[in-house]
Design a protein around this nucleic acid. Structure first.
Lengths: 210, 210
DNA sequence: CCAGGCCCCTGACAAATGTCACGGTCGGGA
DNA sequence: TCCCGACCGTGACATTTGTCAGGGGCCTGG
């Protein structure tokens, strides 16, 4: 923090241009931080990082092209020295878990006061981990997704809201199989509906990833 | 814009503290703008505005307590001189329509480049209207909600994802009536499902307000 | 006054959905 | 090796959902 060390180089990834720019403005107020790249899609993160060589990347989870978790994983392998701080709207347990598994160093929800963001960045840059304690507890409580791969896939496809026949067609499965998977998912989520099951799974962040 | 006129006083309302603070930072970079109040709930807008007497209020639509549209209406009656600029994540046709009906002067989606925000604020302050042309066209095309009050209410309640019996209980209606309203809504939205109907109505912004 | 719209209810029906029991394949442990 | 679990499928079944045709009450505008 003594004035003459080079500033921390930041990459910002968020699909909403306005908040992206606003975050850039916010972070640029800090003397020791410098925004060196901004992207609006997950699949542009690695390329931009290669060009600009940031110290810390702030990634949103909900992004077109590639979600922030996957982008974090890709970034970690491409530039292992670059730390990742996930900044997201939704504090879903599964998001946090998967972000950490993907190699993120920090996880911040957009509810947190603006002043804490710069500190989070500095902490992450210093090699520390930044996680909201309450969310961490919730994550432990929620546990890993009980859904099998196929069930997850079926549920994710069902999100669009089609009939069983549609799902069967889209997934190249029999209607009966689709119904079985859905039934299993409904049971495991404790829901009474397909719709409820989708909501539960979504809130827990179980519908992400491949 | 000649340097010595007093700055435009701004009120910011957004439930996500981080973006709220970030927007404040972004707008504070402009010489002629000054953020005089920040709130995180719709039902705090009027009180904060009374205290700080802003020239322009930037309101998010999705907020706890009171949605941004309703807050805009309340603000317009409480402080008619204060202009309203709605800043929202979703460019839903119904949102724009209702924002305008509520007396908003401008409507900006969070996808727009950050640099345009300050200009939008200045335009609104100058008495002009600010609307994304593409979204305006879409709004005209989408038209007013075809749903009757009751249908809207049933659909909004059904969003939570319960069985017909649940809805009937929550709304103090007969199950048959609920089914009839749902059926009508499904027909009017062109959907094939309850779930699809909800999605369509939500995307068009037909599920807001009372 | 009457027509028309919205609201509420009933009852019956077809279609979609959810559940269950069952068999079979395949791969990875014990 | 054998067993277990995930996976795919079938078929039958109960339940829920969506549709339709009615009926009445209430209000509003012509």
């Amino acid at each position: 923090m003594s004035g003459d060390s080079p500033p921390i180089r930041l990459l910002l990834a968020d699909d909403q241009a306005l908040v992206r720019g606003a975050l850039a403005a916010l972070l640029s107020l800090e003397e020791d931080l410098s925004v060196v790249a901004e992207v609006g899609r997950g699949d542009e993160v690695v390329a931009a990082a290669r060009r600009s060589n940031p110290d810390v990347a702030l990634l949103d989870v909900e992004m077109p092209g590639l979600d922030g978790i996957a982008a974090a994983a890709a970034l970690r392998t491409a530039l292992p020295t670059c730390r990742v701080l996930v900044v997201t709207t939704f504090g879903r347990p599964g998001y946090l878990r998967r972000a950490m598994e993907a190699g993120a160093s920090g996880f911040v929800v957009k509810d947190t006061p603006a002043r804490q963001l710069a500190d989070a960045v500095r902490r992450v840059h210093a090699g520390l981990r930044v996680v909201d304690p309450a969310l961490a507890a919730e994550t432990l409580a929620a546990g890993v997704s009980p859904l099998t791969d196929r069930e997850t896939e079926v549920l994710r496809t069902a999100r669009g809201g089609g009939t069983v026949a549609d799902l069967a067609g889209a997934l190249h499965l029999s209607e009966g199989t689709v119904r079985n998977h859905l039934s299993a998912a409904i049971g495991k989520t404790g829901a009474r509906n397909r719709a409820e099951a989708i909501r539960v799974a979504e809130q827990n962040g179980w519908l992400l990833g491949e």
